[in-house]
């Protein structure tokens, strides 16, 4: 699949999920990941293909999104809640992206988890990611595909 197709798919998924359930949206299609403390969550998925999917966002953006999702004031949102909501976001982005890449194909999404080590997805060999500008802050969606196991003769 061409990079531009994937970027469009990531963009459509990010817009759909953020607008439908998080009351925000993508304001800028190409952006640089914001510096500062990041909130990162990822999950692995099984299917054809299998791989990992993750979300990275500045902590402040994560808290803002969590507040609107939970109907709370930002000052009431704990770091744990911001993490939980980012995990849920990862889950929905991943489901949306995979259904656009392989319509009708069956995938099993594993439990999303916050990654306190903020692992850089670019270290994975077969990976791609896009950063979108939101009304406030940025959000990076990335995906790394597992290589099919080599056939042993």
């Amino acid at each position: 699949m061409q990079g531009t197709d994937l970027q469009r798919i990531f963009l459509e998924s990010a817009s759909e999920v953020l607008e439908t359930m998080f009351f925000t949206g993508v304001a800028e299609e190409n952006s640089e990941e914001a510096s500062g403390t990041l909130l990162c969550a990822e999950l692995s998925f099984r299917g054809r293909p299998s791989g990992r999917f993750g979300v990275r966002t500045p902590l402040a953006t994560g808290r803002m999104i969590a507040a609107s999702f939970l109907g709370l004031d930002e000052s009431e949102v704990s770091d744990a809640q911001a993490g939980e909501v980012t995990c849920e976001l990862t889950n929905m982005f991943c489901g949306s992206v995979l259904s656009r890449i392989e319509a009708g194909a069956r995938f099993e999404l594993m439990h999303p988890e916050v990654d306190p080590a903020n692992t850089d997805w670019r270290q994975y060999p077969d990976s791609i990611g896009y950063t979108f500008g939101l009304e406030e802050g940025t959000m990076t969606l990335w995906m790394a595909l597992e290589k099919a196991p080599a056939l042993v003769a």
């Binding site: 359930m21 889950n91 069956r106 995938f107 999404l109």
Partner: peptide, 26 residues
Amino acid sequence: STDRTEDRVRQMIALGAKGYVKKPFQ
């Protein structure tokens, strides 16, 4: 569920579910 495949929807309905809402939902 985030699982949007028609396969999955059919399977859950066959097992006894009465409805299915795909995340994200309005």
